[in-house]
Design a protein around this nucleic acid. Structure first.
Lengths: 341, 341
DNA sequence: GTTGGCACTCTGAGCCTGCGAGTGCTACCG
DNA sequence: CGGTAGCACTCGCAGGCTCAGAGTGCCAAC
């Protein structure tokens, strides 16, 4: 066996043992738990080399080694393949998700399920509007001077806004506007909406034009890319379980990050650019202060007409990466299938 | 001064000091920090009596006293009045909430605000549908065999469900059904809907009756009291701050309870029966395993046409009750005002 | 390149001890 | 009879100390 290969095997063994026991792992323990075919002394030499290369560190002089962020990264990159879930697990995912009654319910079930499977914090982003198309816009007068604008997308998502009008509403005008709006906008991707709607107000005159402009503005505002996206979170209690061991300070910063939609959305957005099926960010790679002691594993889901978004799991650096990656991938696949059906 | 009164003053002082320092408070410290007008020896006698009565305990023989659940309860019940917030705080609440664009936004802002003000976990229940009225039902054909049912209430809340139809949809029939449905249902309280809608399908014949029955069923299902309610949570990171001191085991059970809508809804429902402006549940009074080391302070908000619901704050037993109660009450009032306007 | 041996380092558990906070009791005072 | 002062007593906790055990690095030998 190539000695370079063995070193990576040693790294793999260290990561696995450390993940399992959460204690620094020494050379003797390694030879006992894995059959590497060499003696502890040899392992020690390899460990010295791995430490030199920055993959592992010792917390103090006479302790075993612990993987660094870089070590985990190497470990993850070197995983040949993600092991599949058991048949029973896959079946459970499938039936659970199929029983959902609407989009909200699907997402809710998916996020809980993922938290359960990974024993970590699960996050699921709502299907993005950016790639989905508009199905219908509904205008509902509310009292004399308020207009409720309801926007329905091909993903079954519904957004609403209330609009205060300058003058009293004319029912006939509203009806006309509704028709024109739907003719102009229905079936359009949201990204194209801007140009499709721009000319619309010009078709009306006087108060009609004012109203039309206001409604168009409102539709665009509602679909504004910043506001369109939402992430739901579940399983935060899983963080508390290993709190002392895995988070030196407190889980506070992690909880804060998870509550900030903006942070999660940025992170998910960045991970979308990785162009791999299951993306992983480890420790500082998250580029977020509160998440330096955490890792996140995500996968895209959806696609086709259903819009595209990501879901994933957040946990400690010392995470079961293969298992988490498998679960994330599996839930993403089933969710994609459900949304397409 | 009556000696019974003094004992309660002593209790109050113990609670205040313990909340401030999180350390058991002794007789000497009490006389120094509060001007009770008596010597430590007298305090000791009072403490012995308070301990006898079950209001306080000592963690171990030679330590100060700590309030029991019962002690906190007595303390809270005896608070003559809730101190108001500062003008600046009230103004901040007011302007923050007024800038909200829709119901979701109002609730979102309110829950974050409350978490911020109390430095605890804030919970806000969506305005209940039970007392609100139906404003409009919209039917939107989606493809040939799916019908999207959108239900809009007077509180501005929007619920939706997708319905799969037996045969292909007839646009004219849908339009007719929409009109009839709105005539029959609009303005009705949700509790009365059942009787208002029951006769509706009989007005139609053949496939129309089938469709009408399905739609009515769907409307009723959607508004089914179990599904109608939702609670949003913010500020969980505040739990982590004092984790070690205030939660002997871990904050895990608390986080679990907060993620379970069912638990929160039951608790809020029970607290609604207390018939007081600001209700408090302390430790075991929550009747929930995971919350034995937590307290919750809630207040109703809304009312009139806006539906009625509760909001509140969850924190450790060792909580600033007066401050939390003031903040909860203030946010409830402003929220009520915003929703009515 | 691998291995066995060995001296060395360092942490963490366990034990001890003295300090200080806080109590309860008793005798005394107004 | 309630309040006070003094005092002996209890007990947790911080700090210091030791010791065993785990783990390392290095060196000489294979």
């Amino acid at each position: 066996m190539n000695s370079e290969d063995r070193r990576l095997d040693v790294l793999r063994a260290i990561v696995e043992d450390y993940v399992a026991t959460s204690e620094p792992v020494g050379s003797r323990a390694l030879t006992e738990r894995h059959h590497l075919g060499v003696s502890p002394a040899t392992i020690r030499n390899d460990m010295a080399a791995l430490e030199e290369a920055g993959y592992i560190v010792q917390p103090h002089t006479s302790a075993g080694r612990v993987p660094t962020d870089m070590g985990y990264r190497r470990f993850v990159d070197r995983l040949a393949e993600v092991k599949p879930l058991s048949l029973a697990e896959r079946r459970a995912i499938s039936t659970l998700l199929e029983d959902a009654v609407d989009l909200d319910d699907v997402i809710d079930r998916a996020v809980r399920l993922l938290a359960q499977l990974t024993q970590q914090v699960a996050v699921v982003q709502y299907p993005s509007l950016r790639r989905s198309a508009l199905r219908h816009v509904e205008l509902v007068p509310v009292g004399a001077r308020h207009l409720l604008v309801v926007i329905i997308t091909t993903t079954g998502r519904v957004e609403q806004r209330t609009l205060e009008t300058a003058g009293d509403l004319d029912e006939a005008l509203v009806a006309q506007l509704r028709v024109r709006l739907n003719v102009a906008a229905a079936g359009r991707r949201l990204a194209e909406l801007d140009s499709a709607l721009r000319a619309l107000p010009d078709e009306f005159t006087g108060p009609g034009a004012v109203l039309a402009r206001a409604v168009v503005q409102e539709v665009e505002d509602t679909l504004d890319l910043d506001r369109e996206e939402r992430v739901v979170v579940a399983g935060t209690a899983n963080l508390a379980r290993t709190a002392g061991a895995d988070f030196t300070r407190s889980i506070g910063p992690v909880l804060e990050a998870l509550e900030e939609q903006v942070v999660l959305l940025r992170l998910l957005g960045e991970m979308a650019e990785d162009q791999v099926a299951v993306a992983v960010r480890i420790g500082r790679e998250t580029q977020h202060e509160g998440l330096v002691e955490a890792s996140i594993v995500t996968s895209p889901y959806g696609g086709q007409g259903a819009g595209i978004a990501r879901l994933g799991a957040v946990g400690p650096l010392r995470m079961d990466y293969p298992g988490t990656m498998a679960a994330v991938r599996a839930v993403a696949r089933y969710l994609t299938r459900i949304l397409a059906g």
